[in-house]
């Protein structure tokens, strides 16, 4: 099947399941009960006294209707059907990405819950860090008789795992910096999570990259300050070819102008090529390679 045909087949399946609408209510095995609440608060370490007085923790809403050790699959369950279809198409792996729950009220011991589920959306294919896949979102509604007591939007990524083969990137293969006594303080700093900027002890001029003398006043009186790590993107590159040791492609590379006024080259992380723009606010983060090397990287500052 071509990529376009595959996408159409996935979307057709999604539409078929969406049209089916809500499943029939599925009832919780047990009524809301104190022993299960006790197990939950014990495991979570939650000590709120209201949970000993007939109220259940809101975050337990879904627990009451879990399928248990030997779940009986509802053949009409849209999530299950969609998952099975995507598995058949080679999207074998699954990863929960989002869970949005609302609680209308706290449940009380003795109440009988039921749940219905509907397929909310299927979006994709998207290339993600773990592989290409579809985001499948379902909406569940919990009721006591006809009263809605809780809802949940649950999103999973159903994906085709990237081949863990020769293409896998080993971060320890990054090119190692040449270091001498003029630059050692910088790399010592990165190992400690400090972004150190050389400062002249005489005229206080900041400088990066560092060197033995102060180009402004000529003194050899070197000190450093620890940068805020906050700045803006002065320019950037999306490196697509050739392969770079220790780096995943495409590789986002930024020239960052720190608030202190000096610039620095670093990898940009936590964003895709389409998210990057000049003047974007960024802040430093750390990529520990091994005991001897930690690299500064920059992420978007919100």
């Amino acid at each position: 099947m071509s990529d376009i045909d595959l996408r159409e087949a996935v979307m057709a399946k999604a539409l078929e399941l969406q049209v089916m609408g809500e499943t029939a209510p599925r009832y919780a095995r047990d009524q809301v009960n104190q022993p299960m609440i006790n197990n939950w608060v014990e495991a979570m370490g939650d000590s709120l006294s209201r949970y000993t007085q007939g109220e259940a923790p809101p975050a337990m809403a879904q627990v009451w209707t879990m399928g248990g050790l030997n779940p009986q699959r509802d053949p009409n369950d849209p999530l299950h059907s969609m998952m099975e279809f995507l598995t058949e198409q080679g999207f074998t792996a699954v990863l929960g990405t989002n869970c949005e729950q609302t609680y209308e009220r706290y449940l009380r011991v003795g109440e009988q819950l039921s749940v219905t589920t509907v397929l909310d959306s299927v979006v994709g294919p998207k290339m993600t860090g773990v592989g290409e896949g579809y985001f499948v979102t379902t909406k569940s509604v919990w009721r006591v008789e006809d009263e809605v007591v809780a809802t949940m939007l649950f999103r999973v990524l159903k994906y085709r795992p990237k081949q863990a083969d020769a293409n896998a990137v080993d971060p320890t293969k990054v090119l190692r910096p040449a270091i001498n006594r003029d630059t050692e303080f910088f790399w010592e700093g990165t190992r400690q999570g400090e972004l150190r900027l050389q400062q002249c002890g005489s005229c206080h001029e900041l400088r990066h990259p560092p060197g033995p003398a102060c180009p402004s006043c000529g003194e050899f009186d070197r000190t450093f300050v620890v940068s805020s790590g906050v700045g803006r993107l002065f320019s950037f590159v999306v490196h697509r070819y050739p392969a770079v040791p220790g780096k995943q492609l495409p590789l986002l590379l930024g020239l960052i102008e720190l608030d202190e006024g000096v610039r620095m080259v670093a990898e940009l992380v936590g964003m895709g090529p389409e998210d990057v723009e000049i003047d974007m606010p960024v802040q430093v983060a750390w990529q520990r390679i091994d005991d001897s090397l930690t690299l500064p990287v920059f992420e978007r500052r919100s």
Partner: peptide
């Protein structure tokens, strides 16, 4: 020259095209 490259190569900026691209974008 090797010390100078410590400020770009380990980050992954390590081909002539990429170094030029940084200036070109600006």
């Amino acid at each position: 020259n090797g010390l100078d490259n410590a400020w770009s190569y380990p980050a992954g900026l390590s081909t002539p095209a990429a170094t030029v691209a940084m200036q070109a974008r600006r």
